[in-house]
Amino acid sequence: MIFRRRIDVPAWGWTTPFGELENLRRQMDLLTEGMTRGLWRETSPGVFPLMNLTEDKDNYYVRAELPGLKAEDLDISVTADTLSIAGERKLPIENEKVKYHRREREAGTFSRILSLPAQVDTGRVDAKCVDGLLSVILPKAEAVKPKQIAVKAS
């Protein structure tokens, strides 16, 4: 019964025959906007390494791809609202006499500072570098954590 009503009597209030078409177009715009936002949100800062910053309720997570680097090669420091990562990537050469077909990997130094969206608890920051992937867990400071506010029924 409800289904029939939807087809016969449009309930979303269009006034012209083109109203529905306009509505459809607007929804398509929203859809494409949502898609491109999700896929192409990354912006390049022009500084190595590229990082992804995510958050959940308690922590911020910073991740960077650093193939070939170990935790001890990295110099990570953190203040209440910045994180800095520096290091050097070396490409060990075992044999000087090799002939190259391709040489796309690069060596060099890097140093980057990242501003965090809010204060973090510097004492509990944890960083690990596994399989060339650095992940830093930064617990949010208690003061900036979202708080549940109970509404009292009087």
Binding site: R41, E42, M51, N52, L53, T54, E55, K57, E65
Partner: peptide
């Protein structure tokens, strides 16, 4: 349950 703040690589 992690939400993106920004993403520089995929």
């Amino acid at each position: 349950d992690e939400e993106d703040i920004f993403r520089e690589y995929r």
